[in-house]
Simulated assay, not measured.
Amino acid sequence: MQDRHVIETLGKVKVVIENGEIVEVGSSEMKYCPMFHAMHGVDELNEEFIRKNINFRIEDFGMCTPQRVIEMDDAVTVGISEILKTNMEKGNIDCVVGACDGAGTLLMTNPRVVQGVGGRVSGLVSTTPIPEVIQNLEAKGSVVLDPETAELNQLEGLKLALEKGYKNIAITILPSPMVEEIRNYPVDDDVNVYIFVAHTTGAKCDEVKMLFENADIVTACASKAISDYADEHKPYYYGVKVPIFCASEDGRRLLDVRLEKINKPLTTNDYPRNKDDAPYKLL
Rank of each mutant, 00 (worst) to 15 (best):
V117N: 11
Q2D: 13
P265V: 03
F56L: 08
V143R: 10
V23Q: 02
I169C: 08
L255M: 09
G157M: 12
A215K: 00
T267Y: 01
M35T: 09
K264W: 11
G157S: 14
E21M: 10
T201F: 00
G11F: 00
M30E: 07
V42I: 15
R183H: 07
T201M: 02
E44D: 15
A99R: 11
I80P: 02
R51K: 15
K209N: 08
E138K: 06
D190C: 08
G119F: 10
T267I: 06
L254C: 01
G141Y: 14
G141N: 06
L10W: 13
I134W: 12
V25Q: 07
T127I: 10
T267C: 14
I169L: 11
H5V: 12
G118D: 03
I217K: 02
E148A: 15
N92G: 07
T267F: 01
A161R: 13
V76A: 08
Q154F: 03
M30S: 12
G104C: 01
G102M: 00
K140A: 04
V191R: 03
K12I: 04
I217D: 02
A198C: 09
E18V: 10
V191P: 01
K275E: 11
N184S: 13
V23D: 02
T127H: 06
N263F: 06
R4W: 09
T109I: 13
N136V: 04
M39L: 15
I58N: 09
S248L: 01
G157H: 12
K204N: 03
E207I: 11
K52R: 07
V16R: 03
D206S: 10
V16Y: 14
G98M: 10
K85L: 05
N269P: 06
R57Y: 14
P265I: 05
T77H: 06
V208N: 00
